[in-house]
Write a protein that binds this DNA or RNA. Structure first.
Lengths: 399, 399
DNA sequence: GCAAAAAATTCGACCCTCGAACAAATTAAT
DNA sequence: ATTAATTTGTTCGAGGGTCGAATTTTTTGC
């Protein structure tokens, strides 16, 4: 049960009931489509008449559309309802240190357009390029009704100010991206940390345990970010900094991390760590030049080709991944922990190692499943679309 | 934004708006009392007329009462409204390994009766004694309207089945306490883990940062339990096991813990650890007999008397407490972390040590405050009352 | 062709909030 | 004292919402 937030609540107006129930309808259609009004009545518990009025309204607003009629042993045939795939206009932008991906999705989360570009060096440049492209796309598909833009960022975003906090891997200053992008496009903008976006992607589009309400994404890249969905809701914390488990110290006096402290999890288990392990095993004194030249993708490829040192580096990385995952599993005991990142290419190799470490380090009453991110090619992009979709499909903001 | 849980939702009925708004009213009165209808209108944004109707209803249902009239520079004087202290009937039961406390509280959370007894050896015995006493109290105060019973337990409770999971310090079997106590008393019963109860206590009755929505309680006793309130809601996880950060391994090959693994946080920072540190420093080979004879309260008392070895034991314990708290702070970045337990008697001594370790181990963009549990004598008991109060003051279960 | 059955719509009853008008109570000015 | 101004609190019809029964629509089986 939730405590009412007296600093930020909405009273119920006379239209509130309709708002609540039509959101429920939308979700039921999303889950069960194609579905008849009669079945919506049964799933929701609302009266037939109420379902009729609500669906009529949703159809007139183009959220739903009528489809074929179904077959029944006897009686009038049901008219199936679907989410209206033509309705859409959800933009997702995934900013990574070197590449930025962009997509336009419809109501069902399918990508209508997807493209990528090199990440601009400055926020100004980014805003200019992105908003121009968005305006072009809106002109290109004029029949869509545009709902909003979500931006996934490799850093944390302060919710109250909607500004960056702590984005070391991106050279941008603390910027008011939200307001500036809103002005440039005329659409509402939401910023989100990339690990949270990964979690959202699995939460809204993943096909594991249907009713999961607690899901944790471990996004492994240059660093390690953790996105948490607990009680069906992203946990951001008061400052947007929740989820920095990557900077929890595993040892008191380990290697120095970019954050300034020592022995952080991500020093041991990130892609950078994987590369470091590989290079250390090649030559006793790691060579700076080679180091910059070898990417984690290279290590993965060497491993796939059977390079023993690359495999050993992955194994070592997996062991530390397991240690951190054990912490999350023990402390938060979610339904699912999803690992996201290039490293999942070697999932068959690392999964047994992770499992073993987790088994050794956590007390296993919990039934958490540890899985690799699904085959969706762009988890961050799909997740950031989910962030925007949530505004229509999420629970109403009330009390 | 929350995802709607299609496995467990409530549609909006015509009475739903009233339910939502009267909960908001109750909370506004709780926060601002004494308060006039006119001010309720201003705080809530509802119409004067609506406020009038809702308060009338709440008064007739005895949730609110009218009080004195206020003073104003001009115009009609406002009639103040209060929570009706006479209304009550919230039972709280705090089960600890040796002692069980029980209280009867009113609507404002004040204790009307409070008593304690030795914890019965078996759940059967417990049920019999407790339900008899509750029936006696209900007969003794017949004017109260009894709302429910909350039970705080030193273990985790599975939400779906409402049965015990993992209660090592209590010798009871896995029991369906909830249903049996409900049958015996006729009141609704809710079970809760004691760390969660501590968190609730601070969340509902603490006077730190008014609008905090993310609060973590670290309950230090024989073991360490963590209660998490994130996004204004207890995090229990799918199985009720969330919060077992006490069993996160700080080192790979530390001492064996009761849970079967090695190096768990609570092996290093619980009261038992404090006692162990003290005894180890006294004699190189710890003596079993002395060990059982010395309690953590003894160590605290020795420390207060200036015993250097006791102080050193506390310092060591504090250092490890800091390590675990740093993990929670870095990973969850809540508004507040509250330390609960006997050890807070020595807060002046241990706080600087905890702060120092946290500073060293966490990257401190977060503005989390680390505090000791307030002077309320029975945090668990107050918290478990809050659990029951939540049913009236919490957000409605909707969508 | 008719009865049974299921889907979908219609319509009045009832619940709720809104907003304007009104009643009540109090102070300051006349 | 009387009146105007001001503020609190209530009353009441309008409008939006769900409920539930009755009705219409559509289909199958006899």
């Amino acid at each position: 049960m939730r405590k009412i937030d007296l600093n930020n609540f909405q009273v119920a107006r006379s239209e509130t009931a309709r708002d609540i129930n039509s959101r429920i309808m939308l979700n039921l259609v999303r889950k069960h489509q194609p579905i008849s009004r009669a079945d919506l009545m049964r799933f929701s518990g609302l009266q037939r008449s109420t379902v009729s009025v609500i669906t009529e309204q949703l159809i007139s607003e183009r959220w739903l559309r009528e489809g074929n009629t179904g077959q029944l042993p006897r009686g009038r045939r049901p008219t199936f309802l679907h989410l209206n795939e033509d309705r859409g206009g959800f933009f997702g932008i995934n900013v990574r240190p070197f590449t930025t991906n962009m997509a336009l999705a419809n109501l069902t989360g399918e990508f209508v357009v997807q493209e990528s570009m090199p990440t601009p060096r400055s926020a100004d440049d980014f805003l200019e390029k992105v908003s121009r492209r968005i305006r072009e796309l809106m002109a290109e598909y004029p029949q869509m009704s545009y709902e909003g833009i979500g931006v996934s960022l490799p850093g944390r975003v302060d919710l109250s100010s909607q500004k960056f906090v702590f984005a070391p891997n991106l050279g941008w200053r603390e910027e008011d991206l939200k307001v500036r992008l809103e002005r440039a496009t005329g659409l509402p903008v939401d910023l989100e940390n990339e690990a949270n976006a990964c979690a959202l992607s699995e939460f809204w589009f993943g096909h594991h345990s249907d009713g999961a309400r607690n899901l944790i994404a471990v996004a492994v890249s240059e660093g390690i970010g953790v996105g948490m969905i607990l009680n069906g809701q992203i946990v951001r914390g008061p400052s947007g900094l929740a989820g920095e488990f990557g900077h929890v110290a595993l040892t008191e006096d380990g290697p120095v991390c970019a954050c300034g402290n020592r022995g952080c999890w991500e020093v041991y288990a990130s892609n950078s760590a994987g590369v470091r392990y590989y290079l250390e095993s090649k030559s006793p004194r790691p060579n700076r030049q080679t180091r910059n030249g070898t990417s984690f993708e290279d290590v993965l490829e060497f491993a796939e080709q059977g390079d023993l040192k690359a495999l050993a580096a992955l194994d070592r990385m997996a062991e530390y991944l397991g240690a951190g995952i054990a912490m999350l599993l023990t402390g938060l005991a979610p339904d699912v922990i999803v690992v996201v990142g290039e490293v999942t290419r070697a999932w068959d190799r690392i999964e047994p190692i992770i499992s073993e470490v987790v088994k050794k380090r956590s007390f296993t009453h919990a039934t958490t499943r540890i899985i690799a991110s699904g085959p969706a090619p762009q988890p961050r992009l799909r997740g950031i679309i989910a962030l925007v979709l949530q505004k229509r499909f999420g629970a109403p903001i009330i009390a």
